[in-house]
Write a protein that binds this DNA or RNA. Structure first.
Lengths: 191, 191
DNA sequence: AATCAACTGGAACGCACATTTCAGTTATCG
DNA sequence: CGATAACTGAAATGTGCGTTCCAGTTGATT
């Protein structure tokens, strides 16, 4: 049903599609990378036209690359929520999220203005998961309740962005961010 | 000496230069603004060529606009350092800095890749002033000393960036950021 | 091997910008 | 009021993209 008379899609095209995706993904981890179609094409040794066609446009290609990176992160967030307490999930997940961001700088640099539906959907999932963590942690008394929960989530997202933007990438910086963030999110000591 | 035989520069040119600068400055406070030469020109009702020529290029125009906004902020930081304790200076200044960023979103959005010498210099001054505040506050025991001072400064800068990026601009969000940041920067409670 | 649709990539195109050109306009000065 | 040099802005130019075209190539199917 899916491929009626054998695959109409040639093997080399499938291979090139995979190569283009891999090259785009690799570029997302390179700090100052140009993130142009030509840069991706050059990396694989293909023509620019071929790279673009494989996914139907630059945006679709990058959407696939970014969402491919993001998908395991989102799954991890949900797994943690199921496995452990919200507070522990929040702490563990934030540590991992910042490590992820440290490893993939390009991911947030030049993506503005692009249409990335799958990525946007995943981001929404991620936000939902973090909101759950915060909500639970607040109930457990480990996160301050004097701030709007949505604001707290935004704060976390922006922290992740800031880590991704750090040049050069620095795990030390990410750790410092996390320390300050978590201490700042704790309920303020009673007078 | 400066204008040997009367001004060689015509009055209308001087006026247009001022108008271009004002328009560029205004655009820096508009969230989704395009920040193109044409957008600036349209705002003043001048031709694009005139706007660019007034400063010798788009970069120079924006450099003038941004540094014009930044200059009082830097002066304020230095004044606070001279007037009061480092801790108080840090708190007061951060509040004002975040309010400034809330008011001028465009300021950090599309400035990447532009050559802004005056702005860069002012930013360096600002960083120096903040470093002084932190250094003093650490000595006063109001800021944790278990983080690298430079990292702490970067953290503050990134927080300011995050506030500038908030859409829509929100003083509430800025306040939340500040609260978390300052609490996170406090020395951790002794066991 | 033969056939043919799928595929490829260099070149052409379209688009958005900043910048430069240049014929016409206008402030300024004698 | 001229005369002249500064100024203006619509159009032309240059640049850096993403995308599309199309003549040539190659994998798949018989």
């Amino acid at each position: 049903m899916s491929t009626p008379t054998g695959s109409r899609r040639r093997a080399d095209a499938v291979r090139n599609r995979r190569l283009a995706l891999e090259a785009a993904t690799a570029l997302l981890s390179e700090p100052g990378a140009a993130l142009t179609v030509e840069a991706i094409a050059k990396k694989v040794g293909l023509g620019a036209a071929t790279v673009v066609r494989a996914f139907g446009g630059k945006d679709a290609l990058l959407d696939a690359a970014v969402s491919g990176l993001l998908e395991p992160v989102v799954r991890r967030a949900r797994d943690l929520l199921a496995e452990t307490t919200p507070t522990r999930a929040l702490h563990v997940f934030l540590r991992e999220l910042l490590a992820f961001q440290t490893a993939h700088h390009g991911i947030n640099d030049q993506l503005g203005g692009l249409d990335l539906p799958a990525t946007t959907a995943l981001r929404a999932d991620l936000v939902r998961a973090v909101e759950e963590m915060i909500d639970g942690a607040r109930r457990e008394g480990t996160v301050r309740t004097d701030l709007d929960p949505g604001v707290t989530t935004t704060l976390i997202g922006q922290t992740a962005l800031a880590v991704a933007r750090a040049r050069p990438p620095s795990q030390e910086l990410a750790d410092a961010y996390l320390t300050v963030l978590l201490d700042g999110l704790r309920p303020p000591a009673a007078p």
